[in-house]
Design a binder for these strands. Structure first.
Length: 480
RNA sequence: CGAAGUGUGGCUCAGUUUGGUAGAGCGCUACGUUCGGGACGUAGAGGCCGCAGGUUCGAAUCCUGUCACUUCGACCA
């Protein structure tokens, strides 16, 4: 990637200190603020607007597959959380407890939901009786709380916003199909709307969700070469159903367990957008998910007619369906350009006396800074084309970066040197045992198994670590 | 939870070693001049120095405790 000209000193260079760059972008783009409680953040208008766009897009996609939205309580009694063994073991270390109601100690303490499988199960165990009650394909938009030790804005906060879908089905096959379908929904959404290319597959035994039989994941690669688990879809089999007693009578009056799934995507995805697309000038929003698609910046706005013409342009664009705003503050133009760039608004439209004279405007792309002179008469059509081009180019650039950071290895020395050179994903064969998985992580300096892709390649016959017969080809990488 | 660091106007920090009337830059407000890549002048507003104790004639500064945040590790969407 070409060295970018840097206009603003307030943002640390991305290649100099990626972690600091990330924090600077979050703060300069006014996405969130820290609060008085560690790991609980204030979502500012710019940040929350992105979440609202994600919600709207994803919710529409969910509903096209038959999902219905619900809302369940924020509190889970301890006895309920404990019903499924693997689940409680997985979450116990990071739940927060409520022990008092007013001034009275509670008879039973309750945790603030870290996830809601147990609540959905409890509800269904009381209400599902017949095959006619199935399937249930539900989702809730809410926040959950996990007492993380180390927190970072969006990437790992204690309270975070997400959606969690929960479904139950009469058959194993139908539930498995739903699990895979939701992985596809996430994959399409993230690639099409967020312009973030992915690798997809199943998690290994050790990386699976607590209580799941299978976890399907989509993984993105950040600009620093680290992987981000973007969304997961879990297949539970009938484990939870049996633990909670969710049974139904089929047409032959025979009693059966239901099969269950759950799937989620969180505000962590906002961190992903920043780390995939952002640059040294700040945030770069993919046009389809950008809360504001273009910002009108008047040049020499004190001159006769400039502000009026700029306002008129904004009105025209609004009427054409664009999400647009104007910066008519008395800041200098240069300041406004930098501001628009830090916020990641995909385009800006400069309009000054020269433009008005020539019946034109100057559209500037955020991603490339390319200046495009457009006739005032064509702007409503051309802007849409430009935004679509940006969307496509952003995906293509990210895809090229991803492809350049996927490598293969058949021997440990090869894997270690390749991984340590530039991070990214390394494809390598694996025998399927947890000991090798851990050893690979330790010896490479942090490359954990990210997923087992559906499209398997045969790189060699043996596990890269122990040399025993290989079962899977796995993507390995350092994870956020 | 281990290790390190930091809390002083909205922000970034100086002042703490050696106790003596709270500082700078940026930002903010008003007015004027500017305006195609973070313009400038003039005049202003704004802080019981994270919190609680203690030592002292006197504490941002020394002592004790406590809370929070940041970064790095182990755990995790």
């Amino acid at each position: 990637m070409a060295k970018e000209k840097k206009f603003v000193e307030a943002i640390t260079s991305r290649d100099e200190d990626f972690a600091q760059w990330y924090t600077d972008v979050v703060s300069k783009a006014a996405l969130c603020d820290y609060s008085g409680v560690k790991g609980c953040m204030v979502y500012l208008p710019n940040g929350y607007a992105i979440w609202e766009k994600i919600q709207a897009d994803l919710d529409k996609r969910f509903k096209e597959t038959g999902v219905e939205n619900v809302y369940l309580p924020v509190l889970i009694p301890e006895s309920l959380l404990e019903k499924e063994k693997d689940h409680i073991e997985g979450f116990a270390p990071e739940v927060a407890w409520v022990t008092m109601g007013g001034n009275e100690p509670l008879q039973e303490r309750m945790c603030i939901r870290p996830t809601s499988e147990t609540l959905f199960c409890e509800h269904w165990s009381r209400t599902v009786q017949s095959y006619r009650d199935l399937p249930k394909v539900w989702n809730q938009w809410c926040s959950v709380l996990r007492w993380e030790k180390t927190t970072r804005p969006f990437l790992r906060s204690r309270e975070f916003l997400w959606q969690e879908g929960h479904t139950i089905h009469a058959t194993y096959e139908e539930a498995e199909e739903r699990t895979i379908l939701m992985q596809k929904v996430y994959r399409d959404f993230i690639q099409e709307s967020l312009a973030i290319p992915l690798i997809a597959g199943k998690k290994t035994e050790s990386e699976k969700f607590a209580g799941a039989e299978d976890t399907y994941t989509v993984e993105a690669l950040m600009h620093d070469g680290k992987a981000l688990q973007a969304a997961t879809s879990h297949f539970f089999g009938s484990g939870f159903a049996d633990a909670f007693g969710i049974n139904y009578l089929d047409k032959n009056n025979e009693l059966h367990s239901v099969y269950e799934t759950s799937w989620g995507l969180s505000t962590r995805m906002i961190g992903g957008i920043i780390m995939v697309h952002g640059d040294d000038s700040g945030l770069v929003m993919p046009p389809r998910i950008a809360p504001i698609q273009t910002r009108v910046i008047p040049i020499a706005q004190h001159k006769e007619g400039v502000l009026e013409k700029a306002a008129e342009l904004m009105g025209t664009l609004k009427a054409a369906g664009y999400s647009v705003n104007i910066d008519d503050s008395d800041k200098s133009p240069g300041w406004k350009f930098s501001e628009q760039e830090m916020l990641g608004i995909p385009t800006r439209i400069e309009i000054g006396p020269k433009d008005i004279e020539n019946n034109q405007v100057v559209v500037v792309r955020r991603d490339t800074r390319e200046k495009i002179v457009v006739s005032m008469d064509e702007i409503t059509d051309r802007l849409g084309d430009i935004l679509e081009t940006i969307q496509k180019d952003m995906f293509d650039r990210a895809k090229k970066f991803l492809d350049e950071h996927i490598d293969t290895a058949v021997a440990m020395e090869e894997m270690i040197s390749k991984f340590q050179a530039k991070g990214g994903f390394i494809k390598a064969m694996w025998c399927g045992c947890e000991e090798c998985e851990e050893a690979i992580k330790a010896e490479t300096g942090g490359a954990s198994s990210r997923c087992i892709p559906a499209e398997q390649e045969h790189l060699s016959d043996t596990c890269i670590y122990c040399g025993k017969p290989a079962k899977h080809m796995v993507y390995w990488g350092k994870s956020y």
